[in-house]
């Protein structure tokens, strides 16, 4: 039976992943130092029998997810609001967009100690740091999504008596949807990065804290399991945004 192209692509991907895991398994069992690397079979074992029996880890996952969602929601709120405000007029874009890009260019890790000073070591610090990462790609993509608007759509809207809300909701928003979703996906990944970074740096809970703990105690199996869970989380969240994006962009056929 001939497979469709889609099925062939899917199975090729699976085969590649399996092959990589197999190579890793062989390498880890034969040559690697077990203080640093665990074979995938042991990682899986650790995930099932160690990680999920450790109540601290479950709590950490819940805490991190909760913080991530709050930070992401705030990043969307501020990113879209400030993006709209800056992108609304060509004057605003010229005056403020370079400033936004400049701030976006600064490696924010350098500011982490400052965040700790201001927000303490509780969840507020992680939310703020996640937000500061997620905000920029969203704002930048909103602004560039507004820049390519057909000026006649705006003039037509004005001549029909559309309010600013109408213009934003029915003209700007659909026009920048593609760009907005690019920003939302990047923003999600970066918010996660910000939250985990903050947890790694100073924390007594969350995924970051536990990965640090396992690394420092030379226990690679649960460490890799945790990283795998984190990666899985990132993929799932990314796919979630993409699913919403596909719904939103149906008109492009």
């Amino acid at each position: 039976m001939r497979m469709t192209t889609g099925a062939r692509i899917f199975w090729t991907r699976c085969a590649m992943l399996l092959a990589a895991l197999l190579c890793w398994e062989v390498y880890a069992r034969l040559w690697a130092d077990t203080r640093f690397v665990s074979p995938p079979s042991l990682v899986l074992h650790a995930a099932i029998f160690e990680l999920f029996r450790e109540p601290g880890v479950i709590d950490a996952l819940v805490t991190s997810l909760w913080i991530l969602f709050v930070a992401y929601a705030l990043a969307i709120l501020f990113g879209v609001a400030i993006g709209l405000a800056v992108g609304w007029s060509s004057f605003g874009r010229k005056a403020f967009f370079p400033v936004v890009l400049l701030l976006y260019g600064i490696p924010q890790v350098i500011l982490l100690p400052l965040f700790v000073l201001i927000f303490g070591i509780g969840p507020a610090c992680k939310i703020a740091f996640g937000l500061s990462h997620g905000f920029f790609p969203i704002a930048v993509n909103v602004i560039s999504g507004m820049k390519n608007i057909n000026i006649l759509y705006l003039r037509s809207g004005h001549s029909l008596g559309a309010s600013s809300f109408d213009i934003a909701r029915y003209i700007y928003l659909p026009n920048m949807l593609q760009s907005l979703f690019t920003g939302l996906r990047l923003g999600m990944t970066l918010t996660l990065l910000g939250v985990v970074l903050a947890e790694l740096y100073v924390s007594t809970q969350g995924i970051g804290y536990w990965t640090k703990l396992y690394a420092e105690t030379h226990d690679p199996a649960p460490l890799f399991a945790l990283i795998a869970i984190l990666a899985l989380m990132a993929v799932i969240l990314n796919e979630l945004v993409r699913a919403i994006e596909r719904r939103g962009l149906r008109w492009r056929g």
Partner: peptide, 16 residues
């Protein structure tokens, strides 16, 4: 703009 009195049609279609 006074949309009650005046309709405006532009160079090209402004259908969204």
């Amino acid at each position: 703009p006074s949309p009650r009195d005046i309709a405006f049609i532009f160079q090209e279609s402004t259908l969204l």
